[in-house]
Design a protein around this nucleic acid. Structure first.
Lengths: 262, 262
DNA sequence: AGGCTAAACAGGGA
DNA sequence: CTCCCTGTTTAGCC
């Protein structure tokens, strides 16, 4: 499940490796992931040149010189490699110089060709605390207006972009916030701490090349490992020694220290 | 809280008494209940002649010969009388022959002037099992598609029009359905029983001139009284002697027999 | 584990 | 106890 750190890492590498390449074709074996039929998709990209590759939230954006772009979302456990053959890989984006991107979707994923002024999901993404300059004040004001559960809010891509159900556990633990706290009942102090911990955790993960079970475009693993409460049900809280619990929070699972997180 | 039976009764009387009368003016002391300012409202109705009065769900519809109409919703506990003065009455609709309707709103209520082709809430009302010819089959199919609580569904005017939180208790009791059953989990047999009980209860109430704490346009009380489980918390179920309970169901209160209703 | 949409639910206001 | 608007939550799909 690649989240913001992995996507940021991939975008950086792709920006270096792909800029100025010319697109040739796409071959695809998972129809549902494309927003256009393969023929139309091919016609749209052929001959286009890549300007840069950036990211927002969990989305990759391959910007073309024409201002059209390709939006990629790896969904749950998707992978993307540069010029490497894996039997299971099901989508190939080939460049004129014979290099290619090989993309594998473990479950669902998206590769969208988007025209210059076309409306797209990426337009509706919320705050990206890493790629954008969001002040602590803005963040706190923004969150304290919502009356839903803080966890749901943080995972809602239209509100806060990039956090998924992997990094969230340690972020909330570090901020000492229970996932089921209603956002508008959390003190400014705690929300400010939350803001800092989000940036801290995500930046730390980025600097380590992402999580240790995700790979970059050269198939190199990252080194970050969730190591506080995430997936540590039954173990002891590193701060207070309470037993870490696994609880249901709406449609997702959460790992928490019932003592530290309020 | 006038519901379908009271409204049907009022509509019948109003149809007899008001047809062919010519409208003169409206004077109003509860601004919020009108959809137009008093001046505009007066200009709209003056000189118009009444064609008929009908009802749908909890709404009264005074049809004018021009095909414009006046839509009235008595809200919670509203009253409407013909040519009677009550100190508390706050809206008067006067006819050219000096008779008038006196309308009192206890809390919120609506008097809307609607142009011939204008869109109005009444257009979106759901099935009215009394004023319309709805087959048992249609009703059962319709309800079994919803996954929400059966009570919420029955009270939702856009789905089923006319039932409110007075008649609903005995209807569900007679159909042996718990208010919190998900609609799509209820057997066809029970839904068919529900269909019959709704019609039975509402028609019975209509034949008795509505509930015994509502009055008609001549200030005459009805004779129907909810007498099974409604408002009988702590008493015994007339069928199985279990203690009747008062429970919260979403935003409304329900009276049920916890044994009979499943 | 992700993201989308339609339906259902919940709070506040008139 | 009414109806309405809005924001939030859920179910089911891809």
């Amino acid at each position: 499940m690649p989240e913001l750190p992995e996507i940021v890492h991939l975008a950086k590498q792709m920006d270096v490796e792909l800029s100025n390449k010319e697109l040739l074709s796409i071959s695809n074996y998972q129809e549902k992931s494309l927003n256009l039929d393969i023929e139309h998709f091919n016609n749209s990209i052929k001959g286009q040149k890549i300007e840069s590759v950036i990211s927002k939230g969990k989305w990759l954006k391959i910007c073309l010189k024409s201002k059209d772009y390709i939006a990629i979302n790896l969904g749950m456990g998707g992978e993307i490699y540069l010029s490497m053959n894996h039997a299971k890989l099901n989508t190939k984006i080939v460049f004129k110089d014979d290099t290619y991107l090989a993309i594998s979707f473990w479950w669902f994923g998206h590769i969208h060709f988007v025209k210059k002024d076309e409306k797209h999901t990426m337009d509706d993404l919320g705050l990206d605390l890493i790629n954008e300059d969001v002040s602590s004040h803005t963040f706190v004001q923004y969150l304290s207006q919502s009356r839903g559960y803080i966890k749901n809010l943080l995972l809602n891509q239209k509100k806060i972009a990039g956090i998924g159900n992997y990094y969230i556990h340690d972020i909330l633990f570090l901020a000492k916030i229970h996932p089921l706290r209603k956002a508008n009942t959390i003190s400014e102090i705690k929300l400010t701490a939350l803001y800092q911990k989000i940036i801290e955790v995500l930046k730390d993960a980025i600097s380590q090349g992402g999580s240790d079970y995700e790979q970059d475009i050269f198939a190199k693993k990252g080194h970050y490992s969730a190591n506080l409460v995430a997936y540590k049900e039954g173990k002891n809280c590193p701060v207070c020694q309470s037993v870490i619990k696994k609880i249901k929070t709406s449609s997702t699972t959460s790992y928490i220290c019932p003592t530290c997180q309020t």
